[in-house]
Design a binder for these strands. Sequence first.
DNA 1: AATGAATGAGCCTTCATTCAT
DNA 2: CATGAATGAAGGCTCATTCAT
Lengths: 199, 199, 199, 199
Amino acid sequence: MGCKRKAKRILQTAERLFASGRFHEVTLDQICQEAGVGKGTIYRYFDDKEDLYFQVILTGLDELVESMRQVREQVDDPGEGLRKAACRVVEFYRKRHALFRLMHTEQIRGSDRKGQMWQKWHTRHQAMLDVFADFVRMGIESERYTARLSPEAIARLIGGMLRSGLRNEDEMPGGDEWPAVVVELLESGLLPRENGETS
Amino acid sequence: MGCKRKAKRILQTAERLFASGRFHEVTLDQICQEAGVGKGTIYRYFDDKEDLYFQVILTGLDELVESMRQVREQVDDPGEGLRKAACRVVEFYRKRHALFRLMHTEQIRGSDRKGQMWQKWHTRHQAMLDVFADFVRMGIESERYTARLSPEAIARLIGGMLRSGLRNEDEMPGGDEWPAVVVELLESGLLPRENGETS
Amino acid sequence: MGCKRKAKRILQTAERLFASGRFHEVTLDQICQEAGVGKGTIYRYFDDKEDLYFQVILTGLDELVESMRQVREQVDDPGEGLRKAACRVVEFYRKRHALFRLMHTEQIRGSDRKGQMWQKWHTRHQAMLDVFADFVRMGIESERYTARLSPEAIARLIGGMLRSGLRNEDEMPGGDEWPAVVVELLESGLLPRENGETS
Amino acid sequence: MGCKRKAKRILQTAERLFASGRFHEVTLDQICQEAGVGKGTIYRYFDDKEDLYFQVILTGLDELVESMRQVREQVDDPGEGLRKAACRVVEFYRKRHALFRLMHTEQIRGSDRKGQMWQKWHTRHQAMLDVFADFVRMGIESERYTARLSPEAIARLIGGMLRSGLRNEDEMPGGDEWPAVVVELLESGLLPRENGETS
DNA sequence: AATGAATGAGCCTTCATTCAT
DNA sequence: CATGAATGAAGGCTCATTCAT
C-alpha cells in the first residue's frame, strides 16, 4: 500500500525546506504542514529531525551516485567521460537545486550516530568522485594524461570547480556547456599549446 | 585601553566554537563561558547571536582580503601571482582552520538584516577572488594565457579547487606546495605538452 | 470536547495572579504551574504574555457588558435603572475582585498591537458606561432629570464613584445597598430638599 | 552644592517616563540617559528602581497635599471649598499629567518595604481626601448639607469623579469650570429643585 | 562623587518529542 | 496507522545592580 507515499512526501518537503534555511531555521511543524501529514507521522518514518535531515541528503546522493555510475559504464574515452560526468553532476544539481546546498555543508566529525551518518555521506560522496577519478586514472594509464597529482586529488579538484561553477552559474558560459568547458580547461591548461587542439 | 579586548576574546572564542558545530549547536553560554566574560557582555558588542556569527566571518574575511591584496601589489608575474595567492589562501585557512568551515557555508539570500550581512560577505569574497582574476587577466592581456572562460570564472574555479584541496589535504601532495601544484595544473593542463615545460 | 478547557483554566489562573501583582511580577511559570498545564500550552492559546493579559481583561469585561445590557432591557425607570446597573457593576467586581484591579489600569495609547488591544478595551468599557448614560438620557428626556453635564459625562462620574467605593467598601454603608445610595445621592444632591423625598 | 540637582533631574525624568509606560517597560538606562546622568548615580540617591518609582509618586503627592491644605485654610464656605479643592486637584494633575497615571495605580498590599511605601502613599492620599471630607463635614455640621453617607465616603466619591473627569476631559464642559460643575452636581443632584438655585 | 562597562540571574519563548485518542 | 494537543527542557535575551576607575 501507499505507506511509503507519506515518507516520500516528507522527504521531498524536507529537501525543499532544509535547502531554504539552516537546520535550526526549519521546524518540523513547517515540514509536516507543507507535506500535509501529521507531526507524529514524521516519527513513524524517521528517528528524529537529524535523521530526517540525513535521509534527505543520503537519498539524494544515492540518486546522483547511481547516475554517475551509468556514465562510467557507458563511456570509454577519458575526456568524454569527464565531460559527461561533469555535465551529469551539474544537471542533477540544477534539477535538485535544493540538494546542492545540503550536500556541501561541512560535515561534523564524530563517533556517535551523527558521525555514522556523515560516514555514510562520505562513502557516497567518495563513490561519486571515484567516477571522475576512474576516468582520470584511465587517461593516465593510457598515457593520454600526465599529472603530478593523484587521480583522486584531481577528482576532488574537479568537484570543487563544479561546485564553484554551480554557485555562480551566471559567470559561467551559457547553456549546458560550461561543465564541459571547465573539464577541457583542466585538460588543456591556460598556457597556449603549439598544436592548440583540445578535444 | 583594552576596552575592545573583550570583544576580541569573544570573537576568537566564537570563531572556534562556531567552527566546531552548527549555529544552533553552539550556545551563548558556551561562548561567554569559554571566553571568560559575562553573558551580557556579548550583547554590549554584538547585536545578537546572529550578528556575532557574521562578525566572526566578516572579521576573518577582512584579514584574508588584506593579505591577498598584498600579494597583488608585490607580484607582477601572473603565474607566480596565482601560486602565491593560492598559497596565501591555504596558509590562512590552515592557521584559521575554524574559519574555513564558516566562510564557505551557503548563504541565504534575503533583504533583511541577514541579507545585508551576506551582502557584505559577498563583497569581501569577491575582493579575494578579484586578486586571482586580476592575475589571470594580466596573463591573458600579455597573451601568456589563453582561455574560453572569463578571468572571473577562472578565479572562481581556482577558489573551488583550493577549497576542495583544503578539505582533503591528506590527498594532496605534502608540504606547502600543493596550492602551487594545483595552479600549475591549471596552467599546463592534463594533456602532455610537446615542450613539457610547465612554468 | 474539552479542548477549550485548558484555555479557560489558564485564563482563570492568570486573572487571579495578574490581580495579585504587577505584570512583570507575574511569571508564566507561576501561571502554568498553578493552572496545571505545561508552559508551552499557554502559547497554543495565546500569542504571548501580553496577549494573555489582555484576554483576561477583555473576557472579563465582556461578561460585565453582557450583564449590564440585561439591566437596560429589563428596567424602564431611570432611577431604578441606574441603581440596578450600579449594583450590577459592584456585584460583578465583588465576585471577580481580581478583575477589578486589571480593568482600571491606565491604558497606554499606541498604534501597534497593544494599541489595538486597548482599543478593544475602550469599546467594551464604553459599552458598559453607555448603559448608565442611556438611563440618564432617559431621565433627562422625560424631564425627570436636569443637568448641566451630558449623559455620557454623568455616566463617567458614576463609574468613577463606583470605582472609589469599591476600593474602599469599608467606608461605604454595609450590605449591598451602597451603590444604590450613591446613585440616590447623585439624584438628590447634598443640599436638603423642601419635599425631602428622594426616590 | 548642587548635589540634589541630580536627584531632581532623575525624579523629573522618571516621572515622565514612568507615566509613559508600565513599570517594567521603563528601564533605568532610559532614565539615566534622558536625565543626563550616569547609571550608577541613580543608586546614590535611590535604593533601587522600586524606590525611585515610589519617590516619584510620594514627592508628587506631597506637593498636591500641600496645595490642598492651603485651600482648607483659606476657604470657609463648604461649597466654595469643595469647588476650589476640586479645581486644585484638576489643575495639579493637568500640569503634572504624568503623575496622574502613577498616583492611581492600584496598590499592592504587603508587609515588606513595598508595603511600607504604599502605606506612605495611603497616608498622603488620605490627607488629600481629608480636605474634601472636612468641607463636607463642615457643611453637614452647619446643616447646610444632608447625606446618608459619611463625609469620608463622600470625599472618596468626589475623588472618583474627578479621576474619571480627568481621564476624559474631552467629555467634560470646556475650560477650568468642570470640576466646579461636578461639585455643584453633587450638591444639587439630578432631580430638579423647586427653588432651583444651586450656589 | 560620578561613571558606565561588566555581570548573571531570571524570564519569555521556541520547538523537538511524546502519547492519548 | 495517523494525528495534533500537550509538554518541558533549553536557550536567547534583558536589565537591574555592582564596582573598578
